Computed example of a mutant assay.
Amino acid sequence: MSKDERDKLFNGKKDENGKTVDLGVISIRGLKAAEAVKATMERPQHVGNNRNQ
């Protein structure tokens, strides 16, 4: 998942006028839940990075 895709997932997506089109995880679940989701998403990346070394 690219950085831009992660930002849209957590912060939502806005149109060219700045109006919210899609809500992100933070808006729906709250900041604490969003941090837990982000930590869960990053865990496999760390495991894969450690395996390749």
Score class of each variant (00 low, 15 high):
Ala39Trp: 00
Ala39Pro: 01
Lys13Gly: 02
Val25His: 00
Glu42Asn: 12
Lys38Pro: 00
Leu31Ser: 12
Ala34Tyr: 07
Lys19Cys: 00
Val21Glu: 08
Pro44Arg: 00
Thr40Cys: 03
Gly12Glu: 06
Lys38His: 09
Glu35Asn: 13
Gly30Lys: 08
Lys14Asn: 12
Leu23Gly: 07
Gln45Cys: 04
Glu42Tyr: 03
Lys38Trp: 02
Glu16Asp: 15
Glu16Leu: 11
Ala39Val: 01
Asn11Thr: 07
Gln45Ile: 14
Gln45Ser: 08
Val21Trp: 00
Lys14Ile: 10
Asp15Glu: 05
Lys8Ala: 13
Phe10Thr: 03
Ala39Gly: 04
Met41Thr: 04
Gly18Pro: 05
Ala39Ile: 01
Gly12Ala: 10
Ala33Cys: 04
Ser27Gly: 15
Glu16Gln: 14
Leu9Thr: 15
Ala39Leu: 06
Asp7Thr: 11
Asp22Gly: 00
Lys8Phe: 09
Val37Glu: 11
Asn17Ile: 01
Asp7Pro: 04
Glu16Asn: 14
Ala39Asp: 06
Ala33Leu: 07
Leu31Val: 15
Lys38Met: 10
Lys19Gln: 06
Leu31Asp: 13
Lys19Thr: 03
Ala39Lys: 08
Gly12Lys: 09
Val37Ser: 06
Ala36Trp: 05
Asp7Met: 12
Val21Ala: 02
Pro44Ala: 08
Ile26His: 00
Ala33Met: 09
Met41Asn: 02
